[in-house]
Design a protein around this nucleic acid. Structure first.
Lengths: 253, 253
DNA sequence: AGAATGATTTGATTTTGGTCATTTCATACC
DNA sequence: GGTATGAAATGACCAAAATCAAATCATTCT
């Protein structure tokens, strides 16, 4: 395979063009005037891979939106182990929940792929919740979705084995219907993906091979080809309470 | 140990007397009039162990409050495995999230210890969210707390081993400060507790013994005596991102 | 008290995933 | 092209937890 430029990589890895109008399920419920304020106070910065945006426990003034690149949300134990909460890309927001948690971030955020990130004051969000009931409702709906996704995540961790978890992740990457063939690209490197799925890199590697043997998928670097999504969903979803296509777990945006 | 009557059992197992004024973090934010409506439409029923209150996917009309007994919230996979979402007792509510998920329960609820349960129409909650912004805010706060607890739960499942998870659970049972000695009672039977912590009963049994050997706690049936909470928290919390006493994970009520 | 039932514990074994060391591969950089 | 670098894969081994089977214990029911 020939070398890819950084830009191509972003495209291939699935980044969508940046949404100038912020078509985010949550933000789109803002009033016109608040949206205007938000865009006015929005400040962009470019961050290199490795940059820590904030640490768990930090006092929170801002929430963030990703224009490009990838950001890892995680927590760390005293033993030095890491738990990856999520990995986000263009169009997704993070850090807003600090509003309700003593104005303190409950996880750390690190850039894992050079990123452009916008910061907006949490105070605007807070005000909007207080004065705009429709927005408060959108927020509730949004948080209910997240809660459901987390329930699923907990279930996956306890009931699916490693190959099944990978299969499930692949299924949720597809945008090509729910059966027949499909091709997908792993959105970020395998080491990070392993962490995102709660396993070691070596386990991921072996589990992916195992998934190939068991379901006949083809693996070409970070590209995965599936002849029949049914086979895959049967394999993974048999150890899950919801059936493919499981809307629940699509973007948490 | 002599036999216990059912009533004693409830007391010993930690049930609090039923709150007639519903001092629930969420419900106490209701307006007077809605609270009155809620109490008016509240209908109590007694359910025996084993009774299914609702199944995941059922159309939802009501949410529930527990007056006595224990209720297990869970999901089931096609393989027949079960994932226990939570186990609730007196004063706690469940089923309300269905409001934001297509009026469908996202988990099943089963009585695991004879229970008195009150049912209230979800429509009242929905109206309240729409007209009472203070309540909407309380709801957001409440959901943010749950989200944080779930994040912790995910972390625990992937970073803590079985004895540590049990130790962590014990710590969260204490109401007696954060150091020195403490005594606590397991709130429900060990098999269910094992499921609640995401492990097999045999693993639970062995892990509890292991915890005893490692930390010097004393186990007398369902009663646990700890000489020094510090020892226990050091043992469990070293594999966790938050330190004892970790408010985060107290009742999800 | 004695039998029946279910919870809990214990033992033996298997499975899964983690750990450590090493190799291979891909990409970036001279 | 040739080397340095980190990602990924592989092998050997270990540890944790699951599984299967059996023994104990507690509680409930005659």
């Amino acid at each position: 395979m020939r070398a890819m430029t950084k830009t191509e990589q972003h495209v291939i890895k699935g980044n969508k063009p940046f949404p100038f109008s912020l078509p985010h399920p949550l933000l789109s419920a803002l009033s016109e005037s608040t949206m205007a304020d938000l865009l006015k106070s929005l400040t962009w910065s470019a961050h290199e891979k490795g940059k820590i945006i904030f640490l768990a426990g930090d006092a929170a003034q801002f929430f963030f939106v990703i224009k490009s690149g990838w950001v890892k949300l995680f927590r760390e134990t005293m033993d030095g182990d890491q738990s990856v909460v999520d990995v986000l890309s263009a169009g997704q927001i993070f850090g807003k929940a600090a509003l309700f948690e003593g104005n303190t971030y409950s996880y750390s955020a690190e850039v894992v792929e050079d990123a452009e990130i916008g910061a907006m004051p949490l105070s605007l969000l807070k005000r909007e919740i207080e004065v705009n009931n429709a927005f408060a409702q959108a927020m509730i709906k949004y948080m209910a979705d997240i809660r459901r996704q987390q329930e699923q995540e907990i279930e996956h961790r306890s009931l699916q084995n490693a190959p099944q978890r990978i299969g499930c992740f692949l299924l949720r990457l597809t945008t090509q219907g729910s059966e027949g063939p499909a091709t997908m690209d792993l959105p970020y490197d395998k080491t990070l993906l392993a962490a995102r799925l709660g396993m070691q890199p070596e386990t991921f590697s072996r589990a992916l091979s195992r998934l190939r043997e068991d379901t006949g998928i083809r693996i070409k670097g970070s590209r995965i080809e599936v002849d029949n999504l049914n086979t895959l969903s049967q394999y993974s979803c048999s150890a899950c309470s919801s059936n493919f296509p499981c809307k629940d777990l699509k973007d948490r945006t």
